[in-house]
Design a protein around this nucleic acid. Sequence first.
DNA 1: ATACTCCTTGGAGTTAACTCCAAGTCAAGA
DNA 2: TCTTGACTTGGAGTTAACTCCAAGGAGTAT
Lengths: 131, 131
Amino acid sequence: MTIKEVCKKFDITPDTLRYYERVGVIPEVNRTKGGIRDYSEEDIKWVENAVCMRSAGVPVEMLIEYVKLFQEGDSTITARRDLLMEARVEVQKNLDKYQATMDRLNYKISRYEEAVKTGVLSWDVVNIKKD
Amino acid sequence: MTIKEVCKKFDITPDTLRYYERVGVIPEVNRTKGGIRDYSEEDIKWVENAVCMRSAGVPVEMLIEYVKLFQEGDSTITARRDLLMEARVEVQKNLDKYQATMDRLNYKISRYEEAVKTGVLSWDVVNIKKD
DNA sequence: ATACTCCTTGGAGTTAACTCCAAGTCAAGA
DNA sequence: TCTTGACTTGGAGTTAACTCCAAGGAGTAT
């Protein structure tokens, strides 16, 4: 699979994909004789994983560390597990924040819907209900 | 309330809070005769809102726009609602991504837990189950 | 009155994660 | 063989959102 195809599949740019490989967010990809990247199924799984993790804010730094440990073999299994658990804590934290913000947005929007209908804007549209 | 107290309350730095005011993420805050910021309840609500929105990745740009519209008065009610709805779409998108990443992390970690216990590392620890 | 601490400002600097660019290579088509 | 177009590289540039800094002012303790 060419770089362009992989990029299309995951909606990222070739620059990003090359960057990921360069810094080690994904392992090195096989090349044709001409030196052009040819992504294997395995490579694509790594890209998929990287894109997913990055979309949830897992730092590039952490993904690099994971790949490094992976390439060191089975002796790093617990280290990898710990790294993933560390990542999970952060993702969960953010998930909670996003959910809290959704709640706030939903509340505000419902108040605005009301205001648009009735012409009356309640005091607390900016904020959240008084305690 | 002093800037330090507000910062402690929301776990941010004075620099960030002054930055928010400077660029318009929150409206201007009242000062003492000496020129020192004295945050009112209202100000604090704005800060709370800004911190919440920012923690879910709502761009500073968008918060500035909201404050600007708010200060223009009731004629901007629908515009503000639309802005909030736009923000909500983005936050929801990210929420979904974070959830997907949590699922992936949970799966991977469970596989690693297994591997740590049994010493056997299944083929797909890196990725997600084959289709 | 002097020192100390915390506040102020405008503006420069930092960071993470891309994103762009110039110069060069390679395979395929005319 | 020559052109075309996609790919390659190392390195520089960009962006959003802070973060830091130097210089100065105000209020309080000694």
